[in-house]
């Protein structure tokens, strides 16, 4: 069994280089060059952490924009998709609940991204159409002119990948923080 000693020596060598040296290097780079991203893109407000720019948090009040549905109930420790088939009755029931929460109607259909759950349940974005769809409710709840809210959405919406992904999206947490700054 002349193979055992070389195997053990390779175990030590690969562990030292491919795990400890490699992870140490990446850790050192990330913590020095991009500490905000390296620690989870946590946003601070008045010295307190209020969420991650990359992780959806739940919003239920009329004065805030609502994120996409989450099969994980926005649990940052248990991300998950619904894993329901697009032909599933359970999915239709869930969608019907969302539709009634938004009071969508045939003459005012709701954009699909506000009804479809994301892959990880923590998608921080909604589509531009999904934000515009909610603008009226938010403006009314805050007593703001609708055009101010619309302008805010337009300012924050961006295409995530230029020509490769031209449909514009909005980060819900950033939008709601900007909204709070706007007032009421």
């Amino acid at each position: 069994m002349g193979h055992i000693f070389p195997s053990l020596r390779l175990w030590i060598a690969t562990l030292a280089i491919c795990v400890f040296a490699y992870a140490g290097l990446v850790l050192g780079f990330a913590q020095t060059a991009v500490p905000f991203q390296a620690n989870g893109s946590i946003i601070m407000q008045e010295g307190r952490p209020i969420g991650s720019r990359l992780i959806a948090q739940n919003f239920t009040q009329d004065r805030y924009f609502w994120p996409r549905p989450s099969a994980a109930d926005y649990n940052g420790m248990g991300a998950a998709g619904s894993n329901l088939s697009p032909t599933s009755d359970k999915l239709e029931q869930r969608a019907a609940e969302t539709v009634s929460r938004y009071a969508a109607a045939q003459d005012d259909p709701i954009p699909a991204d506000l009804v479809a759950a994301s892959g990880g349940g923590l998608d921080p974005h909604i589509s531009l159409a999904g934000a515009r769809y909610q603008a009226g409710r938010v403006a009314a709840a805050r007593g703001l002119p609708a055009r101010d809210v619309e302008a805010l959405i337009n300012r924050l919406a961006y295409a995530p990948g230029g020509v490769f992904a031209p449909d514009r999206i909005v980060n819900v947490l950033e939008l709601n923080m900007a909204l709070d700054k706007l007032g009421r």
């Binding site: 619904s82 894993n83 329901l84 991204d113 479809a116 994301s118 589509s127 490769f164």
Partner: peptide, 12 residues
Amino acid sequence: NLEGKELRLGAT
């Protein structure tokens, strides 16, 4: 079909 997909990654 958007169920199970992330918006920042585009539809494709």
